[in-house]
Deep mutational scan, measured.
Amino acid sequence: SSRTRFTDYQLRVLQDFFDANAYPKDDEFEQLSNLLNLPTRVIVVWFQNARQKARK
């Protein structure tokens, strides 16, 4: 499967949200999905990866 290429804007929004809340609710994932024009699944995985990185 091909990797999603995030724009700088998408990454900034995701990172800002993550800094405020590492565990979004379903409706928040949906809002981010609509805002960033990305599939919810891609955003869910991004947050999983970000939490892994933050733990190191």
Rank of each mutant, 00 (worst) to 15 (best):
V45T: 11
Q52E: 12
T7F: 02
Y23K: 09
V42G: 11
F6C: 05
L32G: 01
A20D: 10
T4C: 02
D8A: 09
E28N: 04
Q15M: 08
I43F: 01
R41D: 15
D19G: 04
T7Q: 04
V45W: 09
L14E: 01
L32M: 12
A50D: 00
Y23N: 13
L35K: 15
T40W: 09
K25L: 09
N21Q: 06
Q10H: 03
N37L: 09
A20Y: 06
D16M: 05
A50R: 11
L11M: 15
R41E: 13
D27M: 11
E30V: 10
K56Y: 08
Q10L: 00
R3G: 15
R41G: 13
T4Y: 07
F47S: 02
F29Q: 04
V42N: 12
Q48G: 11
D8F: 03
E28D: 15
L32T: 04
K25G: 09
D8G: 08
A20M: 06
V13R: 05
I43V: 11
P39F: 02
L35H: 10
R51P: 00
V45Y: 07
D8I: 02
R51N: 15
V13W: 01
W46I: 00
S2R: 05
L32I: 08
L32C: 02
E30G: 05
T4G: 04
D19K: 08
A20T: 11
Y9H: 09
T40N: 11
R12A: 04
D16S: 12
F18V: 04
Q48W: 03
V44L: 12
Y23H: 07
L11I: 13
K53D: 15
Y9S: 13
V44F: 08
A20I: 04
Q48K: 11
L32K: 00
F29N: 03
V45G: 14
P24A: 03
F47D: 02
N37Y: 05
T7I: 03
S33C: 03
R41M: 12
A54M: 02
R5A: 15
N34I: 10
V13F: 06
Q15K: 06
V13S: 11
E28W: 02
A54I: 13
V44C: 13
K56I: 05
S1M: 06
T7Y: 04
L11V: 13
A50S: 10
N21P: 02
D19C: 11
N49S: 11
A20S: 10
E28S: 06
K56L: 04
V42C: 09
D27V: 07
F47Q: 00
V45L: 09
Y23C: 06
P24Q: 01
W46Y: 10
V42H: 13
Q48T: 08
Y9N: 10
D16F: 03
N21D: 05
L35E: 10
S33Y: 01
Q31A: 07
N49D: 13
F6A: 02
A20K: 14
Q15L: 10
S1T: 12
